[in-house]
Structures are given as C-alpha cells and as structure tokens.
Amino acid sequence: MALSRTSGINIDGIVSLVPANINDNLLLTHLSQPDREALIYHTGIRFRRVVKEENVSIKNFFIKGIENLLSNLKWEKESIDILICVTQTPHVSLPAISCQLQGDLGFSSHTMCYDINLGCSGFVYGLHTLSALLNSLNKLNARAILCCGDISTQLIQENDHTTKPIFSDAASVIGVSNNSETMSYFNLETNGSGQKAIYKEDNFMKLNGIDVFNYSLTMVPNNILNLLAFADKNIDLPKMYILHQANKLINEAIRKKLLLDETKTPSTLYDYGNTSSASIPLTLCKNWISESPNWVLFSGFGVGFSVASALIYLNKTIHLSIIET
C-alpha cells in the first residue's frame, strides 16, 4: 500500500458547482411507483443534477469555480503555483484541461499544470498530488488549485436503468496552500482486477453494481484502518468521515464495518446522487460545521478499482460554498 505523509498543507476554500436542472427519481417513467420508492430507499438518491445543454463541458464548471474561489479567497492569479484538473469526462482529450484553463484564465506561465484521469477516488488522489508538489516547492505560502468533477450523465444511455438513477453532474474547485504546521496522511491503493466493475464501452459507462459493492467492501474499510494506524490516530479522532457518495447500500455497509456513528458520516446522496470525484468536497461544503479546527477523514473509491483515503486537519476559517449554474 502507498502510505504517504505530507506537511504544511491547508485547505483554504472549496467551491462546489451543480447544474440548476434537477431530475427526480420519483418520476422515472420505466418504474412503477413502489419500485421508484424502493429505488430511492435503497440507493438513498432522490434528486439528480443533470446538465441540460449538450455544449456545456466540465471546463465551463471549472472556470466558474476558479473565478469564484479566487474572488472569495482574495487570491491573485499570479500567486497560483499549481493547477491540476481531475476528470474522466473532458470535452476534448487534448490538450489537458488544466493547460486550457491556464491560457483562458490568464494564469502565470510559471504555473505547473496537468490533468489526472481518475473518477470517484480522484479528489483524494488530486489532494495528495497537490500536497506532495507543494511540499516540493522551495517557497513559503505556495498556492495550488485542484479542480475535480465530471459530467457523468453524458456517459449514460437513456435506457440504462442501472446507472441513470445513480449519477449526477457536479464539479468542485479547491484552494490549497502550504501555510500550516500540521501533517496530512494518505493511503492510496489500486486493484485493477476490478477494472470491469465500472468502465466505458461504445461511448457509454457500464456499471456492475454487485462488483462495485464487493470491491468497496473489500478495500475501503481496510484502507481507512491502515491509514489511521499509519498516522497513529484513533478511529474516534476525526470529527467527520466524508466518504465518496456511491449509494446508500455501499456507504452504509462501509460505515457499519467501521462501527462509525451515522452523525460522523454525512450524506448528500438524497439531494445530489453520485457526483464522481466532486462528491467528497460537495459533501464537505454541505455539512462541515466546526467551532474549532478539526481532523476529517476523506475516502474516495470507484472506477479502477481505485481507493484513496486522506486524514487532513481542517481550519475553521475554510471558505465553503455551493453554486447552482
């Protein structure tokens, strides 16, 4: 397992973006009313945010999120050292979206830019990459921006009744700097034998629910417990465990394996569904309330099969917002 620790990283702000258009699982036409209610009960998902316009790309979300984040944090574009985008639904495969954003938004040419191709584990992988890179810069108060998210509904066939009720569109833009004294801890793992649990074929996403459940239950609880052991922290320490919002069946099974109280594992499934790599920061934006700085544990898991958890110390002054676009 890839256990890693970095020092001095601070999450300064997160702006999450969701489409204003809302689809309701209670109105799914292919199901009877009792089946719709059973679907919502078991998946935990009632509403999904879906981009209506075909020409809207994840890059549009990232642009709005970056502009809003910079404004709220009062960060100048010239002060950004690193810009990384995590997505599996780029509107074009090259050049990298981060390079396009550097040019379109006018970041300094000294900005390090690249993309990461990951889904539901992508936020934690991206956060680890930023943390390691910020540590490597010989500079005080270095700043980085992480953009993550997907327009997953563009990968879903209209008649695919397995994936359609689960996925939503969303993005999150995260501002990170190296002005903290606290350590951050990561556990990053992969099991490629699960590559057919979620994959793309003929331009559409395919999902095997039973295999996703099995890989999640096999890998995620152990990944989290090994991370806590590596950090020498007790399971009771984190104020919150923010899990990737897969579906209620999976998230509840993980919570029960870890014997975590429901109040420690907030959910945004009912209102937003599964929002891929944006789900963890979106759930943080919706639920993080802390009177004082506190530890939080993030765990992302999915397509790959890829799993990554992080134990991070959050400041109480973090800027968090959710924007409808």
Binding site: A38, L39, H42, T43, H161, T162, N208, G209, I210, D211, F213, N214, L217, T218, L249, I250, A253, K256
Partner: peptide, 21 residues
C-alpha cells in the same frame, strides 16, 4: 438487479460473506 444487490448486501451484513457477480 436492484433487489439482487440489496440481497447480496444483506447476506454480507449477516454472514460477512461477499458473493461476486
């Protein structure tokens, strides 16, 4: 497909056994 997943998850909860697809 949904009830199969629910059934498999409940078996896991009761027995700790995972059944693959």
């Amino acid at each position: 497909s949904l009830n199969a997943l629910v059934y498999i998850s409940r078996i896991n909860e009761e027995t700790n056994v995972l059944i693959s697809s």
